[in-house]
Design a protein around this nucleic acid. Structure first.
Lengths: 147, 147
DNA sequence: CTGCTCATACGATAACCCTCGTACTACGAC
DNA sequence: GTCGTAGTACGAGGGTTATCGTATGAGCAG
């Protein structure tokens, strides 16, 4: 699989678009994260990102709160923080999510516009399919009682 | 990936043909291949099966000739026979395709009914997305000349 | 400044995947 | 029976992934 390797190149901080009228504006989102451009997103990469149960969980949670980005820590997943960081990175590098720093937190949101533009219906199909499957067999979180 | 591990005692299908117990034997395809039942098909597995370029090629070819199953050898893929067998197995074990023996040949067909029933729209989304992406950047087969 | 929290980086480990070549079996034709 | 064709099994290689623990850096509250 020719997944994109981790490139050490970092873009300059161009996160100064949010004009802050507040008094406190010491430092805001100085670190930048590199996301693939819309044209760079590959179907295989997106499908690979979707093919992990943990990441499917994340995507579903993100889709449920599409209007508001969420920090990495609001997810109640049975993995360590390191693993979570890994999964978020996979999702970001494959163009599935957008991550921006906001103070110490990092807010995540689905790149719905890009995915819908590139692969119409795909994200919805996957989300619907996942919901349907979770209803059938549970998703390993709180559906443990199926007998 | 935490999805289905490969058990060491998995490939028992060939010895389990049970043809002697009054089987009708209308055809000589005594070798049986184990496919997951519809309820056994997992979304992660299907997405994983789709997340490989070679398998995407196979799925597209199968979808193009949906009415007729095709043997493994009609695919003109730049991989060895062993690798092809591997990919077909992944597709079969994840519920994407159906394989039946027909003499020395093995006919492959998409499990469209099952996939559509379980995950409505997913297969079409993937096929459409793949066609669209192939038109954009080529898939290494027939879109090589874009200039 | 010190401490705290969020998240990353860095190894490290174990498992997995894609690819291959070679040897083998199953089926049909001669 | 012998041969050829279609596909598998086995075992290996090289690379990737998922998971973890621990150490580190960035930002905020005292």
């Amino acid at each position: 699989m020719g997944a994109p390797k981790h490139s050490p190149a970092f873009d300059e901080a161009r996160a100064d678009d949010e004009a802050d009228e507040g008094a406190v504006m010491t430092t805001r989102t100085s670190r930048a994260l590199d996301h693939p451009a819309r044209e760079e997103i590959r179907l295989e990469g997106v499908l690979h990102a979707f093919s992990d149960p943990m990441r499917l969980l994340i995507v579903r949670a993100l889709a449920a709160e599409a209007e508001a980005a969420q920090s990495c820590s609001v997810f109640d997943l049975p993995v360590s923080k390191s693993t979570l960081t890994h999964h978020f990175r996979v999702l970001r590098e494959n163009g599935v999510i957008n991550q921006i720093y906001r103070g110490t937190a990092k807010m995540n949101s689905l790149r719905r516009d890009d995915l819908d533009a590139l692969f119409p219906g795909l994200l919805d199909s996957v989300l619907t399919a996942y919901a349907s499957q979770s209803a059938r067999i549970g998703d390993g979180r709180d559906q443990a009682a199926e007998g």
